[in-house]
Amino acid sequence: MTEVIDLKDIWVSYDDVSVLEAVNLTVEDKDFLAIIGPNGGGKSTLLKVILGLIKPDRGSVKLLGGNPKKTRKYVGYVPQYISSNLEFPINVWEVVLMGRLSHKGPFRSFNEEDKKAAEDALSTVGMLDFRDRQIGELSGGQKQRVFIARSLVTHPRLLILDEPSTGIDSRRQKEFYELLNRLKSEIAILMVTHDISALSVYVDKIACLNKQLHYHNSKEVSPEDLEATYQCPVELIAHGVPHRVLKLH
């Protein structure tokens, strides 16, 4: 099977300010990869390149083996929920059904198959009881689970999450990462985050991004990588030996 994501030598700049430099990245089926890096380090840009929303100045992008503009509708995408209009008059059920849009055209309303998929996705994330609730009434963690359900209704091979832990209190974050952990047995997950604390336990692989991507196809991040990424010494706390992110030092 082809790689889920295959980026080769990606360069992006905005008005002559370089944002991504020589980025190479491959993601395989059932990988759980987190990309960390400082704000302004190019994380969102990288996601947009992967989804074909930005054309890189140089380099080749393959998503699910093809041109991302064509294949992105087969990807489950969870944008930062701040990007959506939360006062909008819409309930949980309608939000999740929206995920089936890519399979529909104008004039065609959602059928039984769409409704079944929405129901399954909502029970996977444990939000079926909330189907009639207004989206703005939910807590941060609940909203995030609804948006994940929306991205699952097309049974994607890849899930892309942009800063998923924003707005979720730390108690709920564990629950949230456990949900992702369950999902990864079937699909590849790519997540962008600046929240380093949760990574060690659940994520399989970590890459550091600040213009350049430091990635060794593993979970280990060297102090040199972190220093290059954050441009200052960063201290990582390793939670118990089995889940160490840093090598012993």
Partner: peptide, 14 residues
């Protein structure tokens, strides 16, 4: 509805 609620998602949905 998708356009008004979440433009970025709608775009990715094709």
């Amino acid at each position: 509805m998708a356009l008004c609620f979440d433009e970025e998602f709608a775009k990715v949905a094709g």
